[in-house]
């Protein structure tokens, strides 16, 4: 049962990132940082890990002169997150 839990989502921050991306389209770095209440550096390292797993897509562009990076859950990421949620739900006894 516990084996079904995805190791990639063990961290609260990664779980949070996937939760936000599951119900939103592109979300930029600053919005994610404020929603999760983490530092830029901490968020960036978790995002890089998720990016390497191909769970999130990255889009870099300029808004005026300022660079803006946005993230979106990939199809594989959304699927993995759903499977992880199902595994969590099975662990919790119904009352």
């Amino acid at each position: 049962m516990i084996e079904a839990l995805n190791k990639a989502f063990e961290s609260r921050v990664r779980l949070g990132i996937m939760a936000v991306l599951a119900v939103n389209d592109w979300v930029d770095h600053a919005a994610l940082r404020d929603l999760l209440a983490v530092t830029d550096g901490n968020l960036a390292s978790h995002l890089t890990a998720l990016e390497q797993l191909k769970y999130v897509q990255v889009r870099k562009r300029f808004i005026g002169k300022r660079p803006n990076t946005s993230y979106k859950a990939s199809a594989a990421g959304a699927k993995a997150f759903r499977a992880h949620l199902n595994a969590i739900e099975k662990l919790i006894p119904r009352n």
Binding site: I2, R12, V20, A22, V23, N24, L85, I88, E89, I92
Partner: peptide, 24 residues
Amino acid sequence: STLNTMKDSNGDLQHIRALMERST
């Protein structure tokens, strides 16, 4: 360890629900 995972999982679920709501 199963009990601990269950407790963590419950907290995780609440955390996820709150974030989904707050972000949309």
